[in-house]
Nucleic acid binder design. Structure first.
Lengths: 151, 151
DNA sequence: GAGTGTCTGTTGTATATACAACTGAGAGGC
DNA sequence: GCCTCTCAGTTGTATATACAACAGACACTC
């Protein structure tokens, strides 16, 4: 159990984690890439997470919050609060479902229009993100599912 | 400017974004992978972000918070609050720098020991994450810098 | 039809994150 | 020696996120 004299306790573990950890890397990428999209979208008053949700709601409407949360691998409580913010901003409507427990989410006209409006800014952010990430990882990320339907 | 009759306003933009957006994908991966590491680390009372920081501090100590934040592409205010939590838990010490403005971060013994203790749980999480991400993206993520020194 | 279990969404609490504004300490110019 | 500028960290505020606990509505059994 003796530690290498040149490397105090924890250094070897730290070194291994720094070199290999996928959690570090996905977190890092999320910070860097997330900021690119947030900056691009800021003039429109929405961030990356809300764009994500709005896209999901437009493509899946009418959709239950819990169902969308499950597809997006997001906790239902996160969905609940994000939906509330988007309703306050007038981009999403909450309707009643036949099942008295459930809700139906739909984009408002303003929400649909917003998507068209942000498209140029999104394209710009997308270019920057692709440049930052590099070709290989951009290609591989494209292959990942994100829990949204595509027509 | 007429919309395709089969696709209401916003649908084309939503579809394009859902298919291509790197922000959606990095966010999704962050949720899924982050949870794997958080679950594995929960018994030790630290999460992925704090593991990240502890590794950085162990490898770079003594290091100024602002310097580490810059390498990790993290806002200095985020660093400030994360460091405070880790000091409260006894894993990190804040020392004074010659420059009266700066601080020096160092891991405590408990912090160093913690890294050794969590290593098996980290290995387990790492395996799960690699399985979820797939070979190609795991390889490409390894090629990404994360702002930490390696000995 | 009453009781029990399950499903859906909300609320309480904590962490992680960023931007903006602020404070205190050096540093340089004059 | 002051004034100003810059640098480093903190604090205010907002969003995004998760887990745990809760509340209301169905569903199912008997």
């Amino acid at each position: 159990m003796k530690q290498d004299a040149r490397h105090p306790r924890g250094h070897q573990a730290a070194d291994k984690i720094a070199r290999e950890c996928l959690g570090l890397r996905t977190r890092f990428v999320h910070r860097v890439v997330g900021r690119i999209y947030d900056d691009a979208l800021r003039p429109f008053g929405l961030g990356g997470a809300q764009l994500n949700l709005l896209v999901g709601i437009v493509l899946a409407a009418p959709v239950r919050p819990g169902e969308l949360a499950e597809h997006l691998r997001m906790d239902k409580s996160t969905m609940s609060r994000n939906v509330r913010r988007m309703v306050e901003r007038g981009w999403v409507e909450v309707g009643v479902d036949d099942d008295g427990r459930s809700q139906q989410l739909r984009p408002t006209r303003a929400g649909q229009r917003l998507l068209d409006q942000v498209l140029p800014a999104w394209e710009q952010a997308q270019s920057e993100a692709a440049a930052v990430l590099g070709k290989a990882i951009t290609r591989d990320l494209h292959g990942l599912p994100v829990g949204l339907p595509s027509s």
